[in-house]
Amino acid sequence: MPQPLTSLNPPAGAMLALHDVRKTFNAGTVNEVRALRGVNLSLPAGAFLVILGGNGSGKSTLLNAVAGAFRVDEGRIHIAGQDVTRWPEHARARLVGRVFQNPFTGTAPTMSIAENLALAARRGLRRGLGWALPGRLKAELRDQVSQLAMGLEDRLDNAIGSLSGGQRQALTLLMANWLKPELLLLDEHTAALDPKSADQVIRLTSQLITRHRLTTLMVTHSMQQAVNLGDRIVMMHQGSVACQFEGADKQRLGVPDLLARFEELRRRDMLDETAATLLHDTYI
């Protein structure tokens, strides 16, 4: 599609580019939520971005906008140089691998581990009338699953619903990366896990990302994860990017710095509120 304005073209070489992306839920009703209020973002290939922000600041909405769960109201989204703004979710799947917060969302519970992985092995590809699980693929599955070191390689025919949350998230990660995605989206994918499984899944995550040089967006509430992982951080606040750290700034950043930033945002919020109350009291 020809772009009318050169300024709307993505920066050359960007794997992900968001230009003034806006989304309002339930527009015009009492439940109106301006979840994204003009987000601009540009990620070069191989970048690993950690997204922080309070509850309801729009982190999940941002990831959903990129994945195509809904159409954005305004703005443009480019992935790997292609304008995907109007692509439906299933079409974007060719470019995007995802792991969700809820371990139940990423897998089909009544189907076997092997079948789930086989489905992921054709992410975004045409599906035909060939066997879903040819012998060649089965051997590869066993090999990859055994590398998780969770003992799941002998349970490939078990329903995936019988596994623990941590095991499911590890498999979902494997599924999202089976075909190398242009973009990997992780939305608090360890939040529902106990600390030990969360550690395990985080280790696997950073292994996969480094090994395959994946361009990644990861949402987390853990300051520690944000400091340890990734090469850049954005902090979301009320539907837009409040601050951003890259390069040496990011490397120097510690947990206390991040907490201070949070506190600052929170105070600004409270000020807004007092101002609003003041206006309300004065004029109404």
């Binding site: 994945a67 439906p88 979710e89 299933h90 079409a91 799947a93 060719r94 995007v96 995802r98 969700f100 139940f104 969302t105 990423g106 897998t107 089909a108 519970p109 009544t110 189907m111 079948e115 789930n116 086989a118 489905l119 992921a120 054709r122 992410r123 975004g124 590809l125 599906r127 035909g128 009338l129 060939g130 066997w131 879903a132 699980l133 599924m175």
Partner: peptide, 24 residues
């Protein structure tokens, strides 16, 4: 048990998941 058929079962089992894997 074909590619299309397993995708169809997944579409019933967990639509969100299989949509993220590229199925309409």
């Amino acid at each position: 048990r074909t590619e299309v058929g397993t995708a169809m079962r997944a579409a019933g089992d967990n639509p969100q998941m299989i949509r993220a894997l590229g199925v309409n």
